[in-house]
Simulated assay, not measured.
Amino acid sequence: MSSKRKHKKASAEVNLGFQIAPMIDVVFVILLYFMVAAGSQQKENAHNTKLPGTVPPEGASEMPDEVTIMIEDDGQVYLNDDPLDSAEAKDLRELAGSLVQLKQASENANSKILVTVYANELAKYERVVDVLDALTRAKIVDVTFQAGAPE
């Protein structure tokens, strides 16, 4: 019996060392996975595009007319630093009339009119909508907005 105990004790003390075969199997499985996954990737196609060359302008290109509309905190509306209408006027007839004249002048000169609306931080949204209504009546579509005063 004592020999069996020694044999069990001896087999328990045997160090098998670092087994590399399972590690190689795992590496090959991972390599196989990436090879299969790389085959399903779509390749980018090259697009041959011809860029436009330089073409001399046919006529003198005119810069568009730029108009600024400022809306103050109290509701006063300024067109290019000129006050129009009273702060209480809802329909903004003077502003709409001036915008219609500017639109007609720009159409006669074959140029575009660009309008930038500057609204102060405390300006009422209702007043901004009133200005947009005046721009709609003048049929001006190129409008940008900026918060605060012009720089």
Rank of each mutant, 00 (worst) to 15 (best):
Lys8Arg: 10
His47Tyr: 03
Gln42Trp: 01
Pro57Glu: 09
Ala134Lys: 01
Asp65Trp: 00
Leu16Asn: 02
Ser2His: 10
Ser61Thr: 09
Met70Asn: 11
Phe34Val: 13
Asp142Gly: 01
Leu51Asp: 10
Val129Phe: 08
Met1Gly: 08
Asp142Cys: 05
Lys124Cys: 00
Ile140Asn: 00
Val77Arg: 04
Gly39Asp: 08
Gln146Cys: 11
Val115Gln: 00
Ala96Gln: 11
Phe145Ala: 06
Lys9Pro: 04
Asn110Arg: 05
Gln76Ser: 08
Ala37Pro: 02
Val128Cys: 08
Phe34Trp: 15
Leu135Asn: 02
Ile69Pro: 11
Glu151Asp: 14
Ser2Asn: 15
Ala87Gln: 13
Thr68Ala: 12
Ala89Ile: 01
Leu92Val: 02
Glu151Phe: 09
Arg137Cys: 05
Ile20Arg: 01
Val117His: 03
Val129Asp: 12
Ala134His: 08
Asn110Leu: 12
Tyr33His: 09
Ser111His: 01
Leu84Cys: 00
Lys43Ile: 03
Tyr118Met: 03
Lys124Met: 05
Phe28Met: 15
Lys8Trp: 05
Ala149Trp: 07
Leu95Asp: 07
Asp82Phe: 13
Leu122Trp: 03
Val26Gln: 15
Ala109Ile: 01
Ala38Phe: 00
Glu107Ser: 05
Ala96Trp: 10
Leu102Arg: 11
Lys50Glu: 14
Lys6Ala: 13
Glu62Trp: 11
Phe18Glu: 12
Pro56Lys: 14
Asp81Ile: 08
Thr116Glu: 01
Ala123Met: 03
Pro57Phe: 09
Asp91Gln: 15
Asp91Ile: 15
Asn45Glu: 07
Asp73Trp: 05
Lys43Gly: 01
Asp74His: 10
Asp82Pro: 00
Asn15His: 12
Asp81Leu: 10
Leu31Met: 13
Arg127Asn: 10
Arg93Val: 12
Phe18Asp: 15
Pro22Trp: 10
Lys139Trp: 06
Leu135Asp: 00
Arg127Val: 14
Arg5Leu: 14
Ser98Ala: 13
Lys9Gln: 05
Phe28Ser: 15
Lys43Trp: 02
Val36Ala: 05
Phe28Thr: 15
Gln146Leu: 08
Thr54Cys: 15
Asn110Gln: 12
Ala134Gln: 05
Ser106Cys: 06
Pro52His: 08
Ser86Lys: 11
Ala123Arg: 11
Glu66Thr: 06
Met35Tyr: 14
His7Met: 05
Ala96Leu: 02
Gln104Gly: 04
Ala138Trp: 07
Asp91Pro: 01
Gly17Asp: 12
Gln101Met: 07
Ala38Val: 12
Asp85His: 06
Asp130Ala: 14
Val100Gly: 06
Pro52Lys: 06
Ala21Cys: 02
Ala105Phe: 09
Asp82Gln: 13
Lys50Asn: 14
Arg93Asp: 09
Ser40Thr: 11
Met35Ser: 15
Thr116Leu: 04
Leu31Ser: 15
Ala60Trp: 05
Asn48Arg: 04
Lys139Leu: 04
Lys8Phe: 06
Glu121Pro: 12
Gln104Cys: 08
Ile30Arg: 07
Ser2Pro: 06
Ser106Asn: 03
Ile113Met: 01
Tyr78Gly: 06
Lys124His: 14
Val36Phe: 04
Asp142Lys: 01
Glu66Leu: 04
Ala46Tyr: 00
Pro52Ala: 09
Val115Arg: 02
Ile24Gln: 09
Lys124Val: 12
Ser11Leu: 08
Ser61Pro: 04
Lys103Tyr: 06
Ala37Leu: 11
Ile113Leu: 02
Lys43Met: 05
Ala123Thr: 10
Ile30Trp: 13
Asp82Lys: 12
Ile20Gln: 03
Leu122Arg: 15
Leu135Tyr: 04
His7Asn: 10
